[in-house]
Write a protein that binds this DNA or RNA. Sequence first.
DNA 1: ATCAAACATGACTGGGCAGTCAGGCTTGCT
DNA 2: AGCAAGCCTGACTGCCCAGTCATGTTTGAT
Lengths: 303, 303
Amino acid sequence: MFDSLFSERGLSLDRLKVLLEVRDAGSIAQAAPGDPVRQSQYSRQLRELSEFFGCEVAHRRGKILKLTAAGERLAELTREQLRSLDDFRADCRQQNVTFTLGAGDSLIQWLVIPKLGRILDAFPGIHFSTTNLRTNEIVRQITDGRLDFGIIRENAVAPGLKAVPLGVVRYAALVPGRWARAKGGITLGQALRERPLATQTTDGQFASGLRDIAQQLGVPLQAALSCQSFPQTLAALRTGRFWALVPELATHDLPPGSMVRIADERLRQLDREAMLAWNPRLVRVRPNAAKVATHLQQALTIH
Amino acid sequence: MFDSLFSERGLSLDRLKVLLEVRDAGSIAQAAPGDPVRQSQYSRQLRELSEFFGCEVAHRRGKILKLTAAGERLAELTREQLRSLDDFRADCRQQNVTFTLGAGDSLIQWLVIPKLGRILDAFPGIHFSTTNLRTNEIVRQITDGRLDFGIIRENAVAPGLKAVPLGVVRYAALVPGRWARAKGGITLGQALRERPLATQTTDGQFASGLRDIAQQLGVPLQAALSCQSFPQTLAALRTGRFWALVPELATHDLPPGSMVRIADERLRQLDREAMLAWNPRLVRVRPNAAKVATHLQQALTIH
DNA sequence: ATCAAACATGACTGGGCAGTCAGGCTTGCT
DNA sequence: AGCAAGCCTGACTGCCCAGTCATGTTTGAT
């Protein structure tokens, strides 16, 4: 199909553009004012178009070159085509101002959303859509292009993906302030043994780490309240009836002094390195994607 | 205008055509069946289109590549554009099956028209349009592209034009048969001195040559009937009341024996070399023009 | 687990073309 | 006649890209 258009040389978008420029300017000289070099190139390119289409697109009338009727038609046809391509490209770029970002629910709530304001300030017209996903699903969707960015664990980065570190996500063990004041303090072991625990149970790696800690303390792990997300555990904590383990980032949401933090080095076992990941194709295909990635890394870095 | 389409690489008609081929075939593998070399090229070109437009035009779904919605739109847009260009080109070629040929009236009547049948047989679909013009006007119109071919004098060929010889146009002095039979023959001098002459007076060079001959014979030149064209002089000859000088080619139009030819070597001074001329751009721009030129030369050659 | 199909990517080559340089020709004005 | 503007053409260079070679990765079927 359309093979005859490609079996001969002489047709190119550049040449068609020159035809359009000459038509709009009125002559080669006016299309390339004071530039004999471009003037000679334009002359040649118009001739090549004439030879390709088998009709003159312009002819000399005195000193001045004028487009023929056929040349005028070709120029208008070209204008429509270049406009369509330009509009299509602009449309792509318009639609592609929304970047999608997947992360765990708590990271979205306490890391991403608080910082997105700064990112949007830096990129007027850019939008984000966040998606609450598990790490393995994030990896899958980034790989096949359904997700632009994701925050995943360091050890989940797949080959082929680009990832940069965001820092360490830490967890804090909090108990209601009045519990701690009544007893003059409470240890992690005491809390696990004696107090009702509200904990997030859907994150396999977190749950596994918590089991390890309980085992090290020789204490059975029994959640009084199993929650699906850390925001839910924080809500439980606020009732004053439970203690909880929550991301360090979430502690900023609590009134100062309302909770007391249990200090225990074993909690470091729950720490995880968070990475911002994306598909390298993204930055090749999408305008601004590389800059957005850079800004995301800066803004989302955990201190 | 449209500068952004040309300031970045990655857009070309070839690539757009590949997109269309992949869309119509359903996959790269089907667009390039059993051809890993073209398969890898197509893959690359689709990626370059994606990078240029800032959106994926295709994505991998399992083993198979599928065009995205954007890719489908771009493919359809491409189809329209290539069709427009193809139609425009076909239209040019359709319209440009008419070649224009200018010559003197007598040459058109006695040389061109009788031979055009053979030319048209060789080029089905080709048309001619003849125009009665003077040599200098023929030269002018060929030069600025308003005329495709012309039959001109050898000494009128302008630099820049292409010309091939057609042979010598000769002129014959004919008198009504009964005049010659009554006197037992008649010389050119006698005819000029004693008999009413019908002659063509608009061709400067011919008239000038005739004056020269009369002067050589010491006879005043007085045309009894001044005609604008040789067909008119032939008509006058047919009345039996005039003798005339007409192109040798025209004698084939007369009934055998109706006229008697005056033999005189001085008539050779009226001979002229006829050339078929055209603008070299014609054969570059117009399909078939080179072949048509060749056939014209062969068909119109004077023996 | 193995294999073939489908696609992707690195690297290289040669041709085409944009861009450039130099100079010439034609036209129109003075 | 002389000159400048507008256009044309030969020739050259370097870059881009189509085309190619080789190989790798992913996916789906067996």
